[in-house]
Simulated assay, not measured.
Amino acid sequence: MPEGALEIDRISKRYGDVVALDEMSLTVRPGEMLGFVGSNGAGKTTTMRIALGVLAADSGEVRYNDAPIDRTVRSRIGYMPEERGLYPKMRVLDQLQYLGELHGLSRAEAGRTAESWLERLGLAERRNDQLQKLSLGNQQRVQLAAALVHDPAVLILDEPFSGLDPVAVELMSTVLRQTCERGVPVVFSSHQLELVQKLCDRVGIVQRGRMVADGTVEQLRSSGPADLTVHAPQAPPDWADGLRGVSVVDTSGGRTTLRLDETADDQAVLQAALSTGPVHEFSRNRPSLTDLFRNVVTEEPAE
């Protein structure tokens, strides 16, 4: 199957009077990793389930490689649900092989691929164990292997890092990045925003079923409010009062944190600080993804 982008084009979904999705749109390009973030109930899982064909949209379209997704394409999607969906009493290797066959692999090929992923994910010695006998973190690794066993053309993961220890997080991060490097579009939802900021090429922030911010981390951070830290030890507490477009966020230990809007002149701020005496620090701080998320997303009712 040729490489292509996953496109979710203005999909909407209602449950009675509840609007789950309101013309949700996003695109994940070949070899790109998109972090999909939002509060609980914002519409992330509903979007993923519609992309997989588990739910039907009321309107809009999901496409891969510029064509509507059909059964053949869906068989090439790797999906990792937030709730573990494997068979607890089935042996790990047997169910990975079974899932590979469901996705169209021969029995021999499914067995080889399953063995390869178990080795890659550090689970080779547990291949003959029942899933329920593994730790929750190792069950999560098996869930990832299940999403990858058929060499997917698209990878969709719902909270894949939930419950993982730092070693497992690093392993899964490496696997996802290597999957992207093969040209696979990868989209995953997560509440671990520092991890999203570190891993993802782009981030989409969803609120009440709509995409409200979409771009690279740097683009999103640059679009947010800029804070300025000024260390002027001789400055009086009110030295920044009256400066246009400037509000004081915090003052402590001779350091003042200022919030500048689009009308502010940072050079005027510097001159005002210098007029009080020496300035030991004058640095602009862009908001983190966590700050942006806090500013953009408010509490929402659950889906």
Rank of each mutant, 00 (worst) to 15 (best):
V18P: 07
G35K: 01
R284K: 13
T45N: 08
L96R: 00
E101P: 00
G60Y: 06
R29A: 15
D17V: 12
A168T: 08
G277Q: 05
D238A: 15
S247P: 08
G41I: 02
A42F: 15
I11N: 08
K44P: 08
S25D: 09
L228C: 03
R49E: 14
S222N: 11
L134I: 01
A51I: 05
L55H: 12
G224P: 08
L220S: 09
T298Q: 14
L193I: 06
R49K: 11
V37M: 12
L157K: 03
D266I: 11
P236F: 04
E218T: 13
L164M: 02
D261A: 10
L118Y: 06
V212H: 11
P236R: 12
E125F: 00
V28W: 09
G137L: 13
L199A: 04
E3S: 12
G100K: 00
D17P: 13
R286F: 15
I205S: 07
G245F: 06
C180E: 06
S189P: 08
M48D: 04
R84M: 14
H231A: 13
I50Y: 02
V217N: 10
M80P: 02
D58A: 00
V154Y: 01
V187S: 05
R126K: 14
E281I: 03
G38H: 03
D22K: 02
G253E: 14
R91N: 07
D214C: 04
G122Q: 08
A168V: 04
A145N: 05
K89M: 14
R286A: 15
L21R: 00
Q219S: 14
P30S: 10
V167L: 14
M80N: 01
G242V: 01
Q97W: 03
E61D: 10
D9Y: 01
T216V: 04
P225G: 07
E194S: 14
A20H: 06
D266F: 04
D227M: 12
G78A: 07
P301S: 09
T251P: 00
P236Y: 06
G245I: 05
V206M: 12
V18H: 12
E23H: 11
T72Q: 12
L270A: 15
F282A: 07
R112E: 13
Q143M: 10
P88K: 09
L34T: 05
L155G: 03
L289N: 07
D265P: 09
S12H: 06
Q234R: 15
R127Q: 05
F188D: 13
M80D: 00
V167M: 12
V186L: 11
L26V: 14
S189K: 06
L193C: 03
A272I: 03
V246E: 09
E32P: 10
